[in-house]
Amino acid sequence: MQRPEAWPRPHPGEGAAAAQAGGPAPPARAGEPSGLRLQEPSLYTIKAVFILDNDGRRLLAKYYDDTFPSMKEQMVFEKNVFNKTSRTESEIAFFGGMTIVYKNSIDLFLYVVGSSYENELMLMSVLTCLFESLNHMLRKNVEKRWLLENMDGAFLVLDEIVDGGVILESDPQQVIQKVNFRADDGGLTEQSVAQVLQSAKEQIKWSLLK
């Protein structure tokens, strides 16, 4: 590897360029992580979880560390991930130095993101748990319309599965039980009827609790 000549006077800006061109490539973060698993053993497993619709729009997203500190970076990341994954029928990808496991259900895309050193099966267990819990909650209709109808439930489910990047629970049965999601059939009937029924139910419950 030869050095570009340093003479005459290095051109402004070329200094850096020359340094780069001269030396062999710095460790590529890409591909295979160089060296060893240098990170601390830690419970902080999950970098992010997000659910996108089939246009790649965010429905629900939680980021647990500062890999993507700003909303803008998060959105760019989600868009890139979506473009890479939405057309293929696989469940795992490597992107931007991170391992991403994902699942497509009708018009939803569920993603769980971890570092490239992370045990892929751990990430997978979170994804499976998220999907199964939603599946149960949405009565096997894991699709955009029902998810939006039950957004509160979705927030709660995710909160029970991952807390600040730590896997809190991986058994969907436990998650459902903890969320104790009310067994209303909200969207299945006409909206107005459901509301009437629901309010009636609430009132009964209310009186019972008093």
């Binding site: 030396g23 490539a25 295979e32 160089s34």
Partner: peptide
């Protein structure tokens, strides 16, 4: 003298520039 030709090998060498 720059370290004898170090080529980017299949394993990316960490901080190759450093020894120099």
């Amino acid at each position: 003298a720059p370290m004898a030709e170090q080529r980017t090998e299949s394993t990316p060498i960490t901080a190759v520039k450093q020894p120099e």
